[in-house]
């Protein structure tokens, strides 16, 4: 069942990488808006993030697929740890950026997340999501591929769990975001 715990964050990383590749502008704009990184680092960090998401996402999805099929690749635990490391870094950055943008958000400015999984304003739920992804990947690294699905019903359960977890983690910050209010209108 830990297959699902690795496959779900892997799918989200690939989803984010695809979104950033399709439209790289919003990620760079978000990094600028967060105001955490020095000015010269925005472009290289944006490029690094897309490459890291694509490579780690692909490697971990391949690992999860191998676990699903019953094999135990040597680098499987490393792939899970890479996902955990990347998402933990995201969680830390999201927390820093969220705190840095608190005063700006007080002025009702929209500070995008730039995570490629929606365009809702950056909140603490982005850090929470990244932390949950890291927790899932760490669990998968601790018990790689165990327990193994033994039949079609078990395999269907793993696939359903993967999709459900990926979808729910993907929409979590959007669902928890505050609906923007219109100031000064009374009816």
């Amino acid at each position: 069942m830990t297959t699902a715990l690795l496959a779900a964050p892997a799918l989200l990383l690939l989803w984010a990488a695809a979104a950033h590749l399709r439209a790289p502008g919003p990620l760079r704009a978000a990094l600028v808006a967060h105001g955490v990184l020095p000015a010269g680092l925005h472009r290289p960090v944006a490029i690094f993030l897309v490459v890291a998401e694509a490579v780690v996402g692909f490697a971990s999805l391949a690992t999860a697929t191998a676990w699903f099929a019953g094999s135990r690749p040597v680098a499987g635990r490393a792939a899970a740890l890479a996902v955990a490391g990347l998402t933990l870094a995201y969680a830390g950055y999201a927390l820093l950026a969220w705190r840095a943008t608190q005063s700006i958000r007080g002025a009702r400015r929209h500070v995008p997340c730039g995570c490629g999984l929606g365009n809702e304003p950056l909140t603490g739920w982005h850090a929470t999501r990244a932390a949950l992804m890291a927790l899932a990947a760490l669990t998968a690294a601790a018990w790689p591929g165990a327990p193994t699905p033994s039949g079609p019903a078990d395999q269907a359960m793993v696939l359903a769990a993967t999709l459900a977890m990926a979808l729910l983690l993907g929409v979590l910050p959007s669902a928890r975001a505050q609906a923007p209010r219109t100031a000064g209108v009374q009816i």
Partner: peptide
């Protein structure tokens, strides 16, 4: 941990996420 127990644990995790959403 058996597969059934792991699946049940996973189901509760997903349910908790679903409740949050």
């Amino acid at each position: 941990m058996s597969f059934t127990a792991a699946a049940l644990t996973m189901a509760w995790i997903v349910l908790a996420l679903l409740a949050l959403v």
